[in-house]
C-alpha cells in the first residue's frame, strides 16, 4: 500500500474503528452506515478526496447479514490516490444516510443504487427511480431478480414457447 494511503487508512481506523482489506494495492475500508457521512466529510475536507468516482453496491444474496455492500470509490486529485469505502447493509435494515450533502454526484448515484438494489438513502432530496420506468416492480440488480431471459425459439420448441407469449393469451 502507498505511504500516503496508509496514513489515511490509519486515521480512519482510529476514528471509526473500521477494518481494512487490501487487494492488488487497493485499500477497502469498511465503515458502518451511520458513520459514512462523517467519514466522507473527513476524507473530503482533510485528505483532499475531491472526487467521488463511483457509488455502487453489490448484492450477497442469499447471505442476509450483510446482504449488500454499498461501495464508495473516492479519488484524490491532489495526492493522486484512490480509496474505497464499503458500507455493509443488512437485509432487515436497508438504510444508509445520504451523502448528497458531501458530494453532489451522490445524488444521481444514490438514486441509481436505490433503483437497482432497493437500498434506501435516508434524507435524499429526490428519491425516485432513475433508470427503470417509474412503477416497475423489484430491483433488477438484486441476485434474486431474474435476468428476464427469453428462451430462443427453435423449430423443435417453437410451439411450446409460443404458448407462453403474451399474444397467445389474447
Amino acid at each position: 500500500m502507498d505511504k500516503k494511503l496508509e496514513k489515511i487508512v490509519q486515521a480512519l481506523q482510529e476514528q471509526f474503528g473500521s477494518s481494512v482489506e487490501e487487494f492488488r494495492n487497493e485499500a477497502h475500508v469498511f465503515v458502518k452506515a451511520e458513520q459514512i457521512v462523517d467519514a466522507l466529510t473527513l476524507l473530503r475536507d482533510k485528505f483532499e478526496f475531491e472526487l467521488l468516482s463511483a457509488l455502487t453496491a453489490s448484492d450477497y444474496y442469499p447471505q442476509e447479514t450483510p446482504r449488500f455492500h454499498v461501495i464508495y470509490q473516492l479519488s484524490s486529485l491532489a495526492q493522486n490516490i484512490t480509496l474505497q469505502l464499503r458500507v455493509p447493509v443488512n437485509s432487515d435494515q436497508l438504510k444508509v444516510p445520504t451523502a448528497t450533502r458531501v458530494y453532489d454526484t451522490a445524488n444521481w448515484r444514490e438514486r441509481e443504487v436505490f433503483d437497482m438494489f432497493g437500498v434506501v438513502f435516508e434524507g435524499h432530496p429526490d428519491a425516485r427511480r432513475i433508470l427503470n420506468p417509474e412503477g416497475m416492480d423489484g430491483h433488477p440488480l438484486r441476485k434474486d431478480f431474474p435476468l428476464g431471459y427469453e428462451e430462443p425459439q427453435f423449430t423443435f420448441n417453437y410451439d411450446d414457447i409460443d404458448l407462453k407469449k403474451i399474444y397467445a393469451k389474447e
Binding site: 487487494f23 468516482s53 455502487t56 453489490s58
Partner: peptide, 28 residues
C-alpha cells in the same frame, strides 16, 4: 475479491468495478 480500475475515455473517467466470486462469472 474486487478491484476498481479506471481509464480515460474521450468523455472522462471510465471506471470498472469488477468483483469475482471464485467462479468463472463476475459477481458484480
Amino acid at each position: 475479491n474486487s478491484i476498481y480500475n479506471a481509464v480515460e475515455s474521450p468523455r472522462g473517467e471510465l471506471g470498472v468495478y469488477l468483483e469475482g466470486d471464485g467462479g468463472p462469472k463476475p459477481h458484480r
